[in-house]
Design a protein around this nucleic acid. Structure first.
Length: 391
DNA sequence: TGGATTTGCTGGATATGGGA
DNA sequence: TCCCATATCCAGCAAATCCA
């Protein structure tokens, strides 16, 4: 049974070893691992605190007798530093009852391997973490709890299989047989998906994967008519919009676009203010998941001769949403008022870029918006679509 | 002893979690 | 939702260590 001073000394030496090049086998010189006793125990040199002095010395002597460390004392019985015996590292782990980092790394790799080939996100994540382990860096989203780590990967695997809008609690029950388990992992799961997946905004990741808090709606208005369960609704004769619950989106049999153009709008206020007799407007509710994409595809299949465009913010998020929409629906949406002329016209209403905006804009270079992005970066500006007059 | 190697420290950026 | 404290990561530089 080790006492607290022995534990602290040995753990500190092993920590140092595990962070070293010797641990990785990449060392070019033979290293020794030592810690200063003063630094480890701030009260060791405090003469008024004899208990600590004596306790630490006893701990050092026990470890030295067992051959796990070497230490030298001066005439006053003060030890300046302790050194780990390299050839006794295994015994040191055993004495502490501490799992060697190599074993933990292997267990993490085993967990990662169990999710190999499940989906592209998990494969990218697995590849990156194995690379990080090889470089002796920490494994992302692993805080020492293997079960939690496995559950995070399981959540990612399960989330990508959700095909219909599902409440987070119901998803948690289905994936973990526990309605609260997903809530505990949610932040890490979302961070992993956002970093390794392809999502416009972090706060839209779950909705994009069909996990919702409440039933969601797609708002439509303008030049078109829809047929749901045998009932025809002619939107062209209505003054405003209607919201179609996602649960009945799949029941729509026919969408007949009577105008020449179909336009998706990013923000709700702009959707409400937009007005044109020749356009069918769609507000996707801030995100587009599989059900919404199927809705768009259905419209396109039945009305492929129309013009398709997207009206959004002139910022990284807006460009990203448009590209994502095009990619996921295979419909060639054209940007509407998301160009350099519009930005210049409303320059007075523009806002300054954040560091994150700059980074994301640079990532978007070469993806169809170079001219406007160059201007945004050069003039430190972005524009929300609410500032843009639709006409 | 001096050059090469490796670690430690620091500050800045970013993420996270808790409380108001 | 915002603010604040804390944790984590990273890069750059200084210091410590190793060894020919």
């Amino acid at each position: 049974m080790t006492d607290k001073y022995e534990k602290q000394i040995l753990n500190s030496l092993l920590d140092k070893y595990e962070k070293s090049k010797s641990f990785m086998g990449g060392n070019k010189v033979n290293q020794s691992f030592a810690v200063s006793v003063d630094k480890l125990f701030s009260k060791y040199g405090d003469h008024s605190n004899f208990e600590v002095f004596q306790g630490v010395n006893e701990g050092i002597e026990v470890l030295a007798r067992k051959g796990l460390i070497s230490a030298k004392f001066d005439r006053a019985k003060v030890c300046s530093k302790v050194v780990l015996k390299i050839d006794k590292i295994d015994a040191a782990y055993l004495y502490l009852g501490r799992a060697p980092k190599k074993d933990i790394n292997q267990e993490v790799i085993n967990v990662l391997d169990r999710f190999a080939g499940k989906n592209q996100i998990l494969d990218s994540f697995r590849k990156e973490q194995i690379k990080r382990i090889g470089e002796n860096k920490s494994v992302q989203f692993f805080g020492g709890d293997l079960k939690e780590f496995e559950n995070i990967l399981l959540a990612v695997e399960s989330l990508l299989k959700v095909e219909s809008e599902t409440y987070a609690r119901d998803f948690s029950v289905k994936a973990f047989s526990d309605s609260k388990q997903f809530e505990k992992l949610k932040n890490k799961v979302v961070s992993l998906l956002y970093e390794y997946g392809d999502f416009p905004e972090k706060d839209q990741v779950l909705e994009s994967l069909n996990i919702v808090k409440n039933p969601t709606y797609v708002n439509v208005k303008g030049a078109g008519a829809i047929l749901i369960s045998g009932q025809k609704i002619d939107l062209g004769v209505l003054y405003g919009d209607i919201g179609i619950s996602s649960s009945i989106l799949e029941d729509i049999e026919k969408i007949d676009i009577t105008g020449s153009r179909v336009m998706t709008i990013e923000n709700l206020t702009s959707f409400h203010t937009a007005c044109d007799e020749d356009t069918f407007f769609i507000y996707l509710g801030g995100f587009h998941n599989m059900i919404r994409r199927e809705f768009i595809k259905k419209i396109y299949r039945q009305n492929s001769d129309k013009e398709y465009c997207h009206f959004g913010d002139i910022d990284a998020g807006g460009f990203y949403i448009l590209n994502h929409l095009k990619k996921e629906t295979n419909v060639d949406f054209k940007p509407f008022k998301m160009d350099l002329d519009t930005l210049k016209k409303y320059q007075d209403s523009s806002k300054k870029l954040t560091d994150s905006d700059r980074k994301r804009l640079k990532d978007l270079m070469g993806k169809g918006f170079d001219e406007v992005i160059e201007h945004m970066l050069a003039h430190d500006c972005k524009l929300e679509q609410e500032a843009v007059d639709f006409r």
